[in-house]
Amino acid sequence: MVDRVTLYRSPTTVADVDELAAWLRERIDAAVTVRDRFLDVHRTDGLAERFAEARVPSPYERETGNTMLGTIRYEERALDHPEREGGVLYDGLQVQRALNAALPEDERGLETLHVTVLDRAIGTWGDHDGRWHKRVNVLGQPALVSVPGLYEAPAKPEAYYKEKQRHALLSGDAPPREVLENQVEGDFLVEDDPRTTDALKGYVLQAYHYLETGEAFCDREGCRLFNAHYHEDLIDAQLREPAFCGEHAQLYERA
């Protein structure tokens, strides 16, 4: 039984964790509190090295980690100056184990769920196709919710990738957001999207639902507990009504 949920802010992203907490309070029978960035509140000496060990060097190689001194120094700087971190994919399960070890011993029990909203891209290895897959969240203790993952993990419309490639060939850099939105048909989230906080609500609830019931995701498209693999499905599940399928509406739809 989860008695308390602690959410951690992600100050380098547009995610409003206080709003996430307020939304969650209205739907669950547990106390919900907010703390500052997990990597500040629960900083431990070996954390930079643990992040270095969790780095994914290649999308098609299972082996992770680069613990050369320069990489560890980079991770130390990223802990101190998170706004400078970017472009690195981490093994979400390794990061989860590292952050679990960083929790005080009396806070590791499953009656207190920790949900850390991260400004880092996380992934899990797919045995079925031999490659890494970016994820929005990794469930467990603590639960990880990746803001970059919200934009990058689900597949966007095919035209998005074509337009991005075309723009890069012409100008040498990534196209501005408004160019993509005007040129590409279909709805999708991009970095710093104003809909970020609303879209993350279901992913935070998934973390609670998993610990409380043992059910990872809902298999009904359109439910906030659905694990969307395409942006179109993500928007349908997280940003359109109804918020829940019939079964989960009984649990989480409050008047």
Rank of each mutant, 00 (worst) to 15 (best):
L99V: 07
V88K: 05
R97Q: 14
V145M: 00
G92Y: 06
L139D: 08
T116Q: 04
V138R: 10
A98K: 09
V115I: 14
W125V: 04
R108G: 07
T124C: 02
N137L: 00
V88W: 11
A98R: 08
G87F: 11
R108N: 11
V88Y: 11
Y90D: 04
E105F: 14
L103F: 00
V145R: 02
D119C: 01
Q94N: 00
P142D: 09
V145G: 03
A101D: 15
L113Y: 15
L144Y: 13
E111I: 05
V145K: 00
P142Y: 01
D127H: 05
V117D: 00
V88G: 07
E83C: 05
R131D: 01
G123N: 07
R120N: 10
R84S: 15
T124Q: 10
Q96W: 02
K134F: 08
V88T: 15
R131Q: 10
R84I: 15
A98C: 02
Q94P: 02
R135E: 13
Q94V: 03
A121I: 03
L118G: 07
V145L: 01
G86S: 12
L118C: 06
G86F: 12
L144T: 04
V95I: 15
A98Q: 04
T116Y: 02
L89E: 08
E111D: 15
V138H: 10
Q94Y: 06
K134R: 13
V138A: 10
L103C: 07
G87Q: 08
V145S: 02
E105M: 14
D91K: 12
A102N: 06
G109W: 13
R135Q: 14
G140C: 05
L144F: 10
G130M: 07
G87K: 13
I122K: 03
R131Y: 02
V115E: 08
V95N: 06
H133M: 00
V117N: 00
E85Q: 14
Q141E: 14
G140H: 04
D91A: 12
P104M: 12
V136W: 02
Q94T: 07
T116V: 08
D127E: 13
A98I: 06
E111S: 14
E105G: 13
L113R: 14
G87I: 07
L99N: 06
W132G: 03
Y90E: 07
H114Y: 01
H128C: 03
R120M: 12
L93D: 11
L110I: 10
P142V: 01
E105W: 09
H114C: 05
